[in-house]
Amino acid sequence: MTGPRIPPAPDSGAPGDPIPSLARELDVVRRRVDTLAEATEGLPGRVEEIAGLVAKLTDALAAVTARRSPEPAPSWLLAPSDPDELHALVEELGSWLATVFLRYPDGAQVLPECWLWHPDAVEELLWLMHAWCAAYQGATASVGAAGDWHDRQRPGVVARLRKSVGSCSIERHQPRPGWSEVPSSPAEVPGLGHTGRIVGWWATGRDQPPPEPAGFPEASGGGLG
């Protein structure tokens, strides 16, 4: 006796029919899309939050970079030969001297009328002015820098000016017979005549005793010839 015939499942379709399989795959895709939509529901807000954080970090990095790269002070000794630029430097320095430096009694005492005749004095005052600007103005300003300017930088410049120009006067720059003239040109670098001997020794025999200076008798057995 033959048993009852079991009909095929309704969604199985005829053999080779792709529709049921596609329906199942479509259902899986739909569920994945629903899951993804739930997961990304607050994504736009989070993207904006991250963008704001990146902007803040960028600003902070720029500020740190600016603090690490302060502007260099101009040099009077290496200043350009353009009279207009030099005049602008002196005008700016003179204004700062009147506003800041001469407010300190010891500063007023050590700055003679002839300070512009002394390139070393102008150089000192220029960098001191820019150190003050860095301590009090701009992105690099800080209480610590201001304290360093008062405790170390300004007193150091005042002490050096007292030694170099404190006793000078405008009259000393008017040459008269019998008067000692103030040097106006830089001093020669001493010892450069020995460069060849020292370079040869340091390049090839620095572990040996150095050669004796030229013009002196060589010690027997000592140094390089």
Score class of each variant (00 low, 15 high):
Thr2Tyr: 08
Gly3Ala: 12
Pro4Glu: 14
Pro10Tyr: 14
Ser12Pro: 00
Ser12Gln: 15
Ala14Lys: 09
Asp17Glu: 06
Ile19Met: 03
Ile19Val: 09
Leu26Arg: 12
Asp27Cys: 06
Val28Thr: 15
Val29Phe: 12
Arg32Gly: 07
Asp34Lys: 07
Leu36Pro: 01
Leu36Tyr: 11
Glu38Gly: 04
Thr40His: 05
Gly42Met: 04
Leu43Thr: 03
Leu43Glu: 11
Gly45Gln: 06
Val47Ala: 09
Glu48Tyr: 06
Glu48Cys: 00
Glu48Thr: 04
Glu48Val: 01
Gly52Cys: 02
Leu53Lys: 13
Leu53Glu: 15
Val54Cys: 05
Val54Asn: 07
Leu57Gln: 12
Ala62Met: 01
Ala62Tyr: 10
Ala62Ile: 00
Ala62Asn: 06
Ala62Leu: 03
Ala63Val: 02
Val64Tyr: 10
Ala66Phe: 03
Arg67Phe: 01
Arg67Asp: 05
Ser69Phe: 05
Pro70Met: 04
Glu71Arg: 15
Ser75Cys: 04
Ser75Gly: 01
Trp76Tyr: 12
Leu77Cys: 03
Leu77Thr: 04
Leu78Arg: 14
Ser81Ile: 03
Asp82Leu: 04
Pro83Tyr: 15
Pro83Ser: 08
Glu85Ser: 09
His87Phe: 15
His87Lys: 15
Ala88Phe: 12
Val90Ala: 14
Glu91Cys: 11
Glu92Val: 04
Gly94Pro: 01
Leu97Asn: 11
Leu97Glu: 14
Ala98Gly: 03
Thr99Glu: 15
Thr99Asn: 08
Phe101Tyr: 15
Arg103Asp: 07
Arg103Trp: 10
Tyr104Phe: 13
Pro105Val: 02
Gly107Thr: 06
Pro112Lys: 09
Leu116Val: 12
Trp117Arg: 15
His118Gln: 11
Asp120Met: 10
Glu123Gln: 09
Leu125Glu: 07
Leu126Gln: 10
Met129Arg: 15
Trp132Pro: 05
Ala134Glu: 15
Ala134Gly: 06
Ala139Leu: 07
Thr140Leu: 00
Ser142Met: 03
Ser142Phe: 08
Val143Trp: 06
Val143Pro: 00
His150Arg: 13
His150Tyr: 12
His150Gln: 14
Arg152Leu: 09
Gln153Leu: 13
Arg154Val: 03
Arg154Leu: 08
Arg160Asn: 10
Leu161Pro: 01
Leu161Gln: 08
Arg162Gln: 08
Ser164Phe: 05
His173Arg: 02
His173Asn: 05
Pro175Gln: 11
Arg176Val: 10
Trp179Phe: 14
Glu181Cys: 02
Ser184Cys: 04
Ala187Ile: 03
Val189Thr: 13
Leu192Lys: 07
Val199Gly: 01
Trp202Pro: 00
Ala203Cys: 02
Ala203Val: 04
Thr204Pro: 00
Arg206Cys: 02
Arg206His: 12
Asp207Lys: 02
Gln208Tyr: 11
Pro210Lys: 00
Glu212Gln: 11
Glu212Trp: 05
Ala214Phe: 03
Ala214Gln: 05
Pro217Glu: 09
Gly221Arg: 00
Gly222Ile: 14
Gly222Trp: 12
Gly223Pro: 01
Leu224Ile: 05
Leu224Val: 02
